[in-house]
Design a protein around this nucleic acid. Structure first.
Lengths: 131, 131
DNA sequence: CGGAATCCCAAAAGATACTG
DNA sequence: CAGTATCTTTTGGGATTCCG
């Protein structure tokens, strides 16, 4: 019996137990959600800006060694996703600041779940490697 | 007044409003969480396996055009994260199946939040592009 | 200062062939 | 069938230079 090919306990993935259409939409939703946080820098930029508006150079200094090219790209993506707002002030020379939008808070719940799960998960995996 | 450099509304990122230590741990948690779902295929593999155990070739057929090299790698990562279990049956030739573990359900809450947020987010962004 | 342009490198993904 | 080995392509990130 041991070696029969058993079906195994049925695992129910709650977010998949729906019609094919809903399921597809869900996957697209997850992908879009993950995309916003993707890359090496997005989280760190959010952290950096959480303290208030910063200028380009100040962000660079704040997060450490990020090249201007990458920073410009990441900021643009955050802007497109409406997490960050770019503001120009007509000083001379012009001053530009970046700041988090109120909308950026909308992801807080996701982040919270992700943090809770991620921390527990690492503990679990680290523990099981030690055995 | 319009053009003064104002501090802007203060944005509170709840998952960052903690001591530096907790905050660091949180970011690590997020990174670990994101890592598990990372890559082009992980989600699709989970979906494929949600229907029950599958063999290597069957997974390949199920998810479409994934090369065996990538599939092997992704499955290994899912195994390391204890999302997937690999089983060998001493048939001749040997039969190998992959199936989701009960532990894989632990991420359901995260996924749910991510789906809800991700779908709304896309709607928002798509709408704002049309304007 | 706030970038854009160019070139470069490493990692990830993919195609293809091959093996026990 | 269940992968591994090898090679090519693509992507992401980075260094440097330059410009308004």
């Amino acid at each position: 019996m041991e070696n029969d090919i058993e079906p195994g306990k049925e695992i129910t993935i709650s977010w998949l137990q729906q019609g094919a259409e809903v399921c597809k939409e869900s996957i697209a939703g997850v992908r879009d959600g993950l995309y916003v946080l993707k890359g090496k820098w997005k989280l760190r930029l959010i952290v950096a800006l959480a303290g208030g508006p910063l200028r380009f150079k100040d962000i660079q200094r704040s997060v450490g060694e990020i090249s201007s090219k990458i920073l410009a790209k990441e900021l643009k993506e955050l802007e497109l996703n409406e997490f960050v707002e770019r503001k120009e002030y007509p000083t001379s020379p012009v001053t530009i600041t970046y700041q988090l939008t109120p909308y950026s808070q909308s992801i807080d719940k996701v982040m919270h779940e992700l943090i809770v799960w991620g921390i527990k998960h690492r503990e679990r995996i680290v523990a099981s490697r030690k055995k």
